[in-house]
């Protein structure tokens, strides 16, 4: 999948989980600069992403992400 398309799909998941239609995210977005992205919604995001793409992350992978871009790279590396 093209990286931009992947970001678009990720954004749709973020909008749903964070319940924010106005949400703007990019590859440099982090929990520090996205409203309501806290530890609980992070779990919901990870679960929703795993379901959507039918993939599984490891806790090590998740802990390594510094921003949305690194999340995308991790997803891409799983063949998406």
């Amino acid at each position: 999948m093209d990286r931009n398309e992947l970001l678009t799909q990720i954004k749709t998941i973020f909008i749903d989980i964070l319940d924010n239609e106005e949400l703007v995210i990019g590859e440099t977005s982090t929990a520090n600069n996205v409203d309501d992205w806290d530890s609980l919604t992070h779990i919901q995001l990870v679960v929703a992403i795993e379901k959507h793409f039918k993939i599984r992350f490891t806790s090590k992978e998740i802990q390594s992400w510094k921003n949305v871009g690194e999340m995308l790279t991790c997803i891409k590396n799983k063949g998406i």
């Binding site: 679960v47 599984r56 490891t58 806790s59 998740i62």
Partner: peptide
Amino acid sequence: IGIYDSVNAIE
């Protein structure tokens, strides 16, 4: 129906 080890979640 779902186990998400990465975040210790179960559905």
